[in-house]
Simulated assay, not measured.
Amino acid sequence: MRNILLIAFSLVLFTSCSNDDSVDYVKRNDNDIQAYITANNLTAEKSSTGLYYVIDNPGTGVQPTTTDNVTVAYKGYFLNGTVFDESNENGITFNLQQVIKGWT
């Protein structure tokens, strides 16, 4: 009985872990983002980390380094146009070492 349960569990485990390698989600997401950019007539740029961004009001002064504190005003959107996060109108200040790669 114990062996039957072990075999049954193994079958469930292996059949439920099927891997569909035929879908390239990175490419599909990139295509969706490109379509959004085109449909909304944006001039977005893509960083080396894959983050798409638009600079509405470029800052002035010296380019920050990866260890600097910066103040930015931002708004993040899902592809359906829903805002998922944004700073207040005065922006937010943070150290570039404490954020995701896309910010640096």
Rank of each mutant, 00 (worst) to 15 (best):
N19M: 10
K75N: 03
D24W: 09
I92Q: 14
R28N: 09
T66A: 09
E45F: 06
N57F: 04
I33V: 15
Y77P: 01
P64G: 00
V70Y: 03
K75I: 11
V83N: 01
E45H: 11
A73V: 13
K75D: 00
K27S: 13
Q63L: 03
Y74A: 09
N41R: 10
V70N: 02
L42I: 11
T82R: 06
A39P: 05
R28A: 14
T93L: 02
P64R: 00
V26I: 11
S48Q: 08
S47G: 10
Y25A: 04
I55Y: 04
S22Q: 10
N41K: 14
S87Q: 06
A39Q: 15
N41Q: 14
N19E: 09
Y36F: 15
Y53I: 03
Y36L: 06
P58Y: 11
N41T: 14
L42T: 11
D20M: 03
T49M: 06
A73D: 04
V23C: 05
V72F: 07
G91F: 05
T67D: 14
P64Q: 00
Y52V: 09
E86V: 01
I55E: 12
G50L: 09
T49K: 09
S47D: 13
V70M: 02
D20K: 10
F84S: 07
V23A: 07
S48M: 01
D68Y: 06
T82G: 00
N69Y: 07
Q34G: 01
